[in-house]
Every structure is written in structure tokens, then in C-alpha cells.
Amino acid sequence: MTQSTLQQRRDLGKSGETVLDVRHLTKYFPVGGIFSKKQVHALEDVSFVIGRGQVVALVGESGSGKSTIVRLIARLMPPTKGEILFKGRDVLKTEPRQASLSYRSEVQMIFQDPFGSLNPIHTVGYHLSRPLLVHKKVRGRADLRDHIHELLTTVGLNPAAEFASKHPHQLSGGQRQRVAIARALAVDPEVILADEPISMLDVSIRMGVLNLMERLKAERGITYLYITHDIASARYIGDRTMVMYAGHMVEGAESEELMRDPAHPYTQLLLSAVPTPELALAKRKVVTRGEVPSLIDPPPGCPFAARCPKVMNVCHEVMPGVEQINAQHWVRCHLYGPGATQTPATPS
């Protein structure tokens, strides 16, 4: 990519231009036999915005819908309802049946399982050559080879020539994930969707991969949507963090503020459950009841109502709307609604 493009991207980053605008995204899956009308509400009315050059982290437990969001934005499946606006254009309207090649060259994805996201029969070089060839980024074999080597060097796999001829089973987990990053990078994307990229890696390798992602952001102005169940890594790499529960997005704020002042009771619960050795002396006891509710034909109201220590009657009836706590911090919780009589609870 040219320096001027890079400079353009960096400048626009400062102006906070919106790259991805997701509105009311909803996804239901049919479940049960052919005669059943039951549906799994995997994702319910999710909306958020990502600005250029930002790293937005999406935190949630299994079943929260975070992987579903990423697959919808990657256009691996169509949503049941909702809109996806990429750089201002409504992609579901302009390219309804299949994502265009242009979209695919701008929105890329890294998967969770380093062992599964590479085809075992192809070499690393082949994996990297495909996006370059499909998107016509190279001219001729020598150019292709140079590009591949450059990509491998960028992600820290040296000597590049050696790695290009290896097969996935000859690489370690961390190396495979770097190849996956290189593959995503090959098309020079605007946005990279990272679906739990480090959770299946050995602990000592994880930071290296996260740091690589950060470096690429700084060098190439890439925007990230980083999915994780580990809220600590969300804080490490994310400028903003959003929290998901049972298919709903319940809170969003700048990462530091979210850790410091979590508003939603679920976020508070999540933060109190994370092992924090520094605070071991002041061990906090987590008091919870129940488990994540079933997503099949869920009852109305807030999904966290069954477990919330501060539940009120209205929580069982009506899904809370979006309430702004301050300019950057919003939450969906009746405790902060217009009719709330009590002040927002401080984390216990």
C-alpha cells in the first residue's frame, strides 16, 4: 500500500470516520425437527458502530452471540433482520445474494482454531497466494513470490522462503495463526474481524500474536473487531469494549472506563469473576444464581433478569432500551432508564 493511502487512513482515523455501522442485526436459527417452529434467538437487535483505526472488542461467554455477529459481518450467512453499512453503503442491499469481491477485499477474518483455519493439504505459500491471485494483487510469478515472502516477514515468520513451502501440520499453533493473519493481510483490508484469535494458543504465545495485531494496526491503519471471552485481553488491545449476553449487546464503553465503572450488572459480575491475583488479598466473593438462559424462543424482557441481583419487575417484561451514561458509555438496563428511581448501582 502506498504511503499516501496510509497517511490518508491515519488522518481519517483521527477524524473518527465510521467504517462499519451495524444496525438492528438479528439472527434466528430454526431448531428441532422439520415440523418444529422453534427458533434459537442467537442474536437480537444488535447495533454498534466502529470508527476507522479503532480496535473494538466484543466480550461475551459461549452462546452470547459474539461469533454469530462476526459471521454475519463476514457475510458467511445472511441475517434474519438488520443492516450492515460498510463505509456508508448498505451492503445487504447493494449485494444481497453474495458478497462482492470488493467487500471481500476490504473485510477479512481470522478464525479461532489455528489448526482448522488452514487447509491441511496446501502449503503456506498456496494459502497466501490464493487471495493475492483472486484479488489480482500481483503480476506474474516473481511478483507473487515476493509478495508472499513480504507477508511472511511482516508477520514474523522468518526465513520466509522456508515457511512458504511448509504444510500446516509442520507449524506450531502460534505460527499457524500468524499465517492466518498473513492471509487476511494479503488483500490489504480495511477491517479485520478476529474471532477469538488467541484463545486456543499456548499462554506464552498469545501476547506475541496480540502485539502483532497491534503493530499492524499502527503500520497499516487496520480497524479490528476483536471477539473474546477474556475481558482482560479486551482491555489490553481494545480501545472500546462491548459486552454481550444471551444474544443481546448490553453495554459499550471505552475499555478503561468499562473496567473501572461497569454499569450493567452482568458486566459487574463478569469483572468480579475474572481471576485477579493482585487483589487476592481482598478476595471478592461472587454470589450468583442460575445459568445462562436458553436461547430457544426466549421470554420477553431482559435476558439477565433471572440472574440479576438488582432485578425489578419491569425487567421481566420489557427489554431495556439504550441509555447513554455519558458520551462514550451506553448500557441497556432498566436501572439507568428514565424511570429509574435509584442511582446506578456501584460495583459491589
Binding site: R71, A74, F111, D113, S117, L118, N119, R130, V187
Partner: peptide
């Protein structure tokens, strides 16, 4: 259902390529 097939789709590969060069060889 494998991730590498999803990755190929996201890379912009055609269905023919995915069927014959990604899935079939496996």
C-alpha cells in the same frame, strides 16, 4: 463446516474452486 472453507469464502474464492481445490482433495 471447517474453518478453512469459511476462510476461503471470506477470501473471495469461487464455489468451483472451493469444491474442487479445497474440499475434494481432502
Amino acid at each position: 463446516e471447517k474453518d478453512f472453507v469459511s476462510a476461503s469464502i471470506v477470501s473471495g474464492e469461487s464455489s468451483t474452486h472451493i469444491i474442487f481445490r479445497e474440499i475434494l482433495p481432502n
